[in-house]
Amino acid sequence: MVGRDGSAVGEYVIGRASPVLPDPSSGADERPGADWDFLGHTCEYPDAGRIWPLWAEGGPAGPGEWARGPARTHGSWLHVVQTAWFTSGRRATRYGTTETAVLDGSALSTKESFYCALGEAVNGPGGYFGSNLDALHDCLRSLRRNSDRPLRVRWHDLAASRAALGDAYTDALLSVFAESGVDVTGD
């Protein structure tokens, strides 16, 4: 994926690609452009193709853009965020300056939406801060190593998040935060 200035904003490893050429026995005088076969692989994030142009133009225009799409697009949004984040050379840590990440629990409907909201709360629009429990743990671990600034999370409408994410997953998130010394306040 290439930005307006020609720089890479996202990269995919697709394995071996093979051109699918027309049959030479067809007698066609011209050789049209080849189609490509990527060993039958397709992107598992079907809405990513509609989201990547935002990154080609420099990223989301402002906060909450991920939430404007239906819940089915949040996984694709998170995929684009994560891919663009690491392609740009950034690591799994906090780059934002805020010490308190504020989450609106009423906007969370899926696990992916939680990570979209958290990434934005910690690192600004289009920011990444984990995409699953293990990745969140990695981000928090690198945060402790690389920063003397504590991170706090203010989680508004935690009850709505708990209803959307389930008790087990919400408890797992709170446990990861607690293990990493992150103070979480919910209302």
Rank of each mutant, 00 (worst) to 15 (best):
M1G: 12
V2C: 00
V2F: 08
G3A: 13
G3S: 12
D5A: 15
D5M: 05
S7N: 13
A8T: 13
A8N: 12
E11A: 09
I14N: 03
I14T: 14
G15E: 07
R16G: 02
A17M: 13
S18Y: 05
V20P: 01
V20H: 00
L21P: 00
S25E: 10
S25M: 09
S26T: 15
A28Y: 05
D29G: 13
A34K: 01
D35P: 00
L39M: 07
G40K: 02
T42L: 03
E44Y: 00
E44I: 00
Y45N: 05
P46F: 01
D47T: 00
D47Y: 07
A48E: 10
G49W: 00
G49R: 07
R50C: 03
I51S: 07
W52G: 01
W55D: 02
E57W: 04
P60K: 01
A61D: 15
P63H: 13
P63I: 09
P63N: 08
G64C: 00
G64N: 08
E65K: 00
E65I: 01
E65V: 08
E65P: 00
A67M: 06
A71T: 09
R72D: 12
T73N: 08
W77D: 03
W77L: 01
V81R: 04
G89W: 09
G89E: 08
A92K: 11
A92S: 15
A92V: 11
A92F: 06
T93D: 12
Y95M: 07
Y95F: 15
E99W: 01
A101P: 02
V102R: 14
V102L: 09
L103V: 05
D104Y: 07
D104G: 12
G105P: 10
S106K: 12
L108Y: 01
K111N: 06
S113M: 15
F114R: 09
C116P: 01
C116M: 04
A117I: 05
L118Y: 04
G119K: 06
G119D: 04
A121Q: 07
V122D: 05
G124P: 05
P125R: 11
G127W: 12
Y128D: 11
F129R: 11
F129E: 07
G130S: 08
S131D: 14
S131K: 06
N132K: 05
L133Q: 08
D134R: 13
A135K: 10
H137C: 02
H137V: 02
H137R: 15
S142A: 08
R145L: 10
N146H: 12
S147K: 07
L151D: 09
R154L: 14
H156E: 10
L158G: 15
A160T: 06
S161E: 11
S161D: 07
S161V: 02
A163D: 15
A163F: 02
A163L: 14
G166S: 14
G166P: 13
A168K: 14
T170A: 15
D171N: 15
D171F: 06
L174P: 07
L174F: 11
V176K: 04
V176H: 08
A178Q: 14
S180F: 07
G181Q: 09
G181T: 10
D183Q: 14
T185F: 03
D187S: 04
